[in-house]
Design a protein around this nucleic acid. Structure first.
Lengths: 195, 195
DNA sequence: CGATTTTTTGAATCATATCAACGTACGTGG
DNA sequence: CCACGTACGTTGATATGATTCAAAAAATCG
């Protein structure tokens, strides 16, 4: 468990957790390593586990009918990854989760997950709350995506997640912003000049 | 309860619900009527209840810093409305829920809601699942919004929710698609001609 | 019916995409 | 550790699509 320090902190920070629940949880999670560019999940596979990011960075994306890649979000240290639809409903994913750096994850499989949801109120409550928060954030971003210009989206990204631009290839940042890499390059030039 | 037939069906359709739980639930929901253009929730208010749409249609939107209105979603019969962030965290909403037709809702307040989440596993499970599904759908839409052209977004709307175009003012449809009413009008003209 | 709101149209402008080419950085094998 | 080849990022010229502003037409409401 030496490589899982931050996961340990995460678990211990859960409100009202008992030592027994803590052990139950820790015992059911296993570390998984990914090389750069390796996939945690591919379209067509059933998502068999969800994971906590100890170290590294990943992208969550779809390949759409028009041939374009749309990056829905990135995940960094202390984020959770996995495709809920596929994981909970046991159906093939329509999405990819790909490592953008070498990654260290701590993962739990579906059976253990369902067991914990049943026996541990703390686990259930933490997971439910994570989902609620993620949903709320998704709706907020969706409003911004509809009404902001490309430059406003870039500036927001720069302000809220400056690390993304440092750790993620710019063509992926562009696929996240919904613009072309060329446009991103021009926007960056313009913004850099403006200061 | 004569005006709540579809809500009754909704409750009765919950898997494994007991007659007692059913009564507990029904007794805690009250009908609320809204006139056309009336607000169920305004920015700055705390969302004190969530509601099931018996009849009517509403929009869920934000007013952004750049002055634009971004419609996040519409709700029709058999949908749930409310601002989760505000409702669960008791903080002022950053959003509006506005009736686009005269509406009949069935609503539950926060105290009753929390009580039901505590005492009824069926209620908790239905609510949790609704949130998960809504989250999954939100992520899917977010990918489309990033990669589709305005025309593709319009065609998708036409295919998946044709009722929206019939029941919602086109300037609101435009605010949902993230384009101007003028652009929507031109796209409609083009698409109509193409068939 | 008249007043207001909503939708459409037109012309000019602006933002972003596209395609092609060039420069730069990077990691990989020799 | 260097050189090469591939990836990535930038730039330019042009095309496309969407916005803006103004005004007219159409629909809706009292």
């Amino acid at each position: 468990m030496s490589q899982s320090q931050s996961f340990l902190n995460f678990v211990r920070s859960a409100a009202g957790i008992t030592p027994d629940e803590e052990q139950q949880i820790l015992r059911r999670f296993q570390t998984v390593s990914l090389k750069n560019k390796e996939y945690f999940l591919r379209e067509g596979e059933v998502c068999k586990r969800i994971g906590y990011v100890e170290q590294g960075c990943l992208s969550y994306y779809r390949l759409l009918e028009n041939g374009k890649k749309a990056i829905v979000q990135f995940a960094f240290e202390d984020w959770w990854i996995g495709d809920l639809e596929s994981f909970l409903q046991r159906k093939p994913a329509q999405t990819f989760w790909q490592a953008l750096e070498p990654c260290e994850l701590v993962c739990i499989g579906r059976d253990d997950f369902e067991r914990m949801m049943t026996i541990s109120p703390v686990f259930r409550s933490v997971f439910t709350k994570k989902t609620q928060t993620a949903y709320i954030k998704a709706l907020e971003r969706s409003a911004w995506d509809k009404a902001d210009s490309a430059e406003q989206k870039y500036l927001r990204l720069l302000k809220e997640y400056p690390q993304i631009l440092k750790r993620v290839p710019h063509y992926d940042v562009a696929a996240y912003l919904g613009i072309t890499p060329e446009s991103l390059s021009r926007i960056r030039k313009k913004v850099a000049k403006a200061r």
